[in-house]
């Protein structure tokens, strides 16, 4: 049962004050990563390095294992074989939350529907008792402003927001952690192109402002080539191509070229 073997990412009940945001982004090292669900092999021996502070985009057709890979990085899945190292820690280590600050923006946002937007954004600080209620309120306002949402949104519940607003709230909640590594799972899915563009800019701005290592899983070619420092292309759980956007465009693989050239005619 996933919930039982997946205690929170820290073993310690009390989390210390996070280090300052001047900490650089974290490198991620993936070695021979394998994962199966039943008989289906979803990841087949992935090997790659994500450099500290870069925006790394993972693309690939549906069912290629991109989101499962992302869940392995954040420690929500345990690999069958191989390992992922974030900084000097294994992703599966219970102490990783004591040493590094990681955050993920889920495809669905993953906002707690029973809490208001402000409570969602301040949840990390209030639950770990890092700040008092009075101190949390201005932080929440700041984070809302960072993702261009008005302070009034803080009083609403997630169900009262549009898809784009929910995504931005999820980003704001991730920013409260002051992450050294942030993961985005399909950040522009279900969004119109303009909101998608705004989200893409948020990802880029965040990376440039804080130097956080950013991993983005997406189908959105415009977003991928617009923000990536480097990219990986997965097919059926295997790494087909890895390199800069220019190198990926030039890479000669039929599925990759088909993926990049696909247009409705």
């Amino acid at each position: 049962m996933a919930i039982l073997n997946a205690s929170p990412l820290t073993a310690s009940p009390v989390v210390s004050e996070p280090p300052s945001s001047s900490n650089p982004g974290l490198p991620v090292s993936v070695r021979n990563l394998e994962k199966s669900f039943g008989k289906q092999k979803v990841l087949k021996g992935l090997n790659l390095e994500i450099r500290a502070g870069e925006i790394f985009v993972i693309m690939g057709p549906s069912g290629s294992g991109k989101s499962v890979f992302l869940r392995h990085i954040i420690g929500l899945e345990v690999p069958d074989a191989g390992e992922i190292r974030i900084g000097n820690e294994l992703s599966t280590s219970e102490a990783i939350g004591d040493h590094y600050r990681l955050a993920i923006v889920f495809q669905s946002g993953g906002l707690l529907n029973s809490l208001t937007v402000a409570e969602n954004i301040g949840l990390y600080l209030s639950e770990h008792r890092l700040k008092s209620r009075d101190q949390i309120a201005p932080i929440v306002r700041d984070k809302l402003a960072l993702v261009r949402l008005s302070p009034e949104v803080g009083d609403k519940y997630p169900s009262e927001l549009s898809g784009g607003m929910r995504k931005r709230v999820a980003i704001a909640r991730a920013l409260v952690v002051d992450p050294q590594l942030i993961l985005f799972d399909e950040p522009t899915s279900e969004l119109d192109p303009l909101v998608g563009l705004t989200i893409g800019r948020e990802v880029l701005n965040l990376n440039q402002r804080t130097g956080v290592t950013t991993v983005v899983v997406t189908h959105d070619r415009d977003l991928a080539f617009g923000i990536a420092d480097r990219m990986a292309f997965l097919v059926d759980g295997e790494l087909i191509a890895l390199g800069t956007p220019e190198e990926i465009r030039a890479f000669n693989h039929p599925i990759l070229q088909q993926f990049l050239a696909a247009e409705f005619k």
Partner: peptide, 11 residues
């Protein structure tokens, strides 16, 4: 994914 979100927030 609300429970996953909790875990990623170390809760």
């Amino acid at each position: 994914q609300e429970i996953d979100a909790l875990r990623t927030l170390n809760i």
